[in-house]
Nucleic acid binder design. Structure first.
Lengths: 219, 219
DNA sequence: GACGCTCTCGGGGTTTTCCCGGATCCGCGC
DNA sequence: GCGCGGATCCGGGAAAACCCCGAGAGCGTC
């Protein structure tokens, strides 16, 4: 029986290339999508066996789409095919329900094998990533479910974004029309939550998590 | 006459897909390469009309490869096909000699048209990027070649790298075995040279220029 | 209504950063 | 030699950041 595959990536050229590679190796490319929302919608209609998915989908979040798909379609397995291979990306994808994680530097042969094994129910990870997931699992087992997801309040996120831009507390206070002491308080609580020690680390955190790119004013 | 094209990208799947797309539209894919060094070496032998090139080649620098190719092969035009479309990436590529810049979210049709126009000698830029280059040109024309390359001393670079990691002046002083006041002075002169205002902006600068990734101790 | 959370503001302290001047050394040209 | 610019080093003083604390107002939940 043929395995139906769905390809999610915001690059049309990439989608076409992967679709052809898989088609030539006996898979049925049942659908493609360019962003997370479309992926969820189409996957629900098509019910592919494997969703081959990029994490970096321009604006929308690939991780959220993975979570939607794996919860709504328990028979569909998601194989992430991403450029990064970054520690956090891998763990987030796995937490969201991904069955495997391949970096885009993989060869066509590796890709084909990975899709086949994913369809068969085996978890597939690029060399090095499997150990990463295992290590994180152990750390979770040691510390029985405490932080790992320190969520910031809306105001803390506002302040964090401006701190990451290099503004001082007074400049941030002017923009948000509050006291600079309040700004400093938000900075402090953010530092505590993220277990960081100063604004530079805060800026690094914001940059690595893409918080510094988003627009601020929406009303 | 057929246009010979060379494809440089560290993702085999991407290379194959692009090669097939171009092949089906009458281009001759004369060569492919996975990194900058190979690109320069092979391009010198093959002398393609157009080099279709990713900037993000894993370890090696795409910009350096562009510079090599365009200086050594004046008849070869380099069309960058990159994921980012970031301000600095575009400008660096153009400065290195790229004839055009396409983001990877382009369609196959756009890609084919871009390669054709690049071969014909027209500069090709994704919408929005052309204005970016023009704007930068104007800024250069306004300020008659003053800064644009503020070089830092060795010690300033050492300090900058550690500042970008989030270390305080005292921690940096301990590592470099100097007084923390001296560290602060290096920070100050760096701020002046780069026309920045605080350590967070310094960290952003270092991250954007890749200074924070390099190792520090080589002796 | 009690509770918890967020956002706001401030007191009062230490530490760090930011900005200035001043010192030494070293290479380079006159 | 002697000045001159640079790189590197150090210090004083003002500003900002960091850290802990308490407190009121608003807003949902139980």
């Amino acid at each position: 029986m043929t395995v139906s595959v769905m390809i999610v990536d915001d690059h049309p050229i990439w989608r076409d290339g992967v679709a052809r590679d898989l088609g030539e190796h006996g898979f049925e490319v049942a659908a493609t999508a360019a962003d997370g929302d479309a992926a969820v919608r189409i996957a629900r209609a098509v019910r592919p066996a494997v969703v081959l998915m990029d994490l970096n989908l321009g604006s929308s979040s690939g991780v959220a789409a993975i979570r939607e798909i794996t919860t709504q379609l328990p028979d569909t397995r998601v194989l992430v095919l991403s450029a990064s291979g970054e520690h956090d990306d891998v763990l987030e994808a796995v937490k969201a329900g991904a069955s495997g994680y391949l970096v885009k530097s993989a060869s066509v042969r590796e890709l084909v094998a990975a899709v086949r094994r994913t369809a068969g129910g085996d978890p597939v990870f690029t060399a090095g990533l499997a150990g990463m997931v295992l290590g994180e699992y152990r750390r979770m087992a040691d510390a029985p479910s405490d932080q790992q997801a320190p969520r910031l309040t809306e105001r803390e996120t506002d302040v964090l974004r401006l701190v990451a831009k290099g503004l001082t507390a007074r400049q941030i206070a002017d923009r948000l029309v509050i006291s600079h002491r309040t700004v400093e308080n938000h900075v402090q609580s953010t530092l505590r939550k993220l277990q960081l020690h100063n604004r530079v680390e805060l800026a690094r955190y914001a940059i690595e998590h893409g918080l510094d790119q988003e627009q601020e004013g929406r009303g």
